[in-house]
């Protein structure tokens, strides 16, 4: 962050490369839209750059901080979508036809997206952070602002449900 605050091009490029892949993937999975994910990713990167001069080295890791910002931005977008639609809809628009869904070519991928989209919000977020974003227990708990024990419970319930949905189907049961 110090190098970003100093305006070093290498540091900024490094940030944007990471953001352009991992953070975008995170937002895209939550929002179900690559375009929306680009907007959210850009906003998170800009916030990081603006925040860089005030960064406290002893605080959260940059990766954890960025995931927190992206998750909050995604939650805002999902809330607005719900308000606009006027009904309580699934957070992931997994049944709506959109270009992003078309990218999920394999039937199995669609099933996975659908199963994860059907999870309760907090379980879904926990699984996104730990499985797809590779955050460890402490980082994911920090992003979700919950204890490690609460994270463990969310993950266990989410994974149990996914096993029932996905492994049972895969085994033809």
């Amino acid at each position: 962050m110090k190098r970003i605050a100093q305006g070093q091009p290498g540091a900024i490029r490094e940030l944007t490369v990471v953001a352009g892949s991992r953070l975008h993937a995170f937002a895209a999975r939550i929002l179900g839209s690559s375009g929306d994910a680009e907007d959210v990713t850009q906003e998170a990167v800009i916030r990081a750059v603006r925040h860089a001069p005030r960064w406290q080295p002893g605080g959260a890791k940059l990766n954890t901080w960025l995931h927190t910002v992206v998750l909050n931005l995604c939650r805002d977008r999902l809330r607005k979508r719900r308000e606009l639609s006027g009904v309580e809809m699934p957070d992931r628009a997994d049944s709506a036809p959109n270009p992003e869904q078309a990218l999920l070519e394999a039937e199995q991928a669609r099933l996975v997206a659908k199963a994860i989209g059907a999870l309760p919000e907090r379980q879904r977020e926990a699984i996104m952070l730990v499985h797809y974003q590779d955050l460890d227990a402490a980082e994911a708990a920090h992003v979700l602002e919950i204890s490690i024990e609460a994270l463990e419970s969310l993950l266990a319930r989410g994974r149990r449900r996914l096993k029932q949905e996905l492994l049972a189907k895969e085994n033809g049961t």
């Binding site: 975008h24 690559s34 994910a37 990218l103 996975v112 994860i116």
Partner: peptide
């Protein structure tokens, strides 16, 4: 789970 690949930007 890994079969669900996120769309690229």
């Amino acid at each position: 789970l890994d079969q669900w690949v996120a769309p690229s930007p």
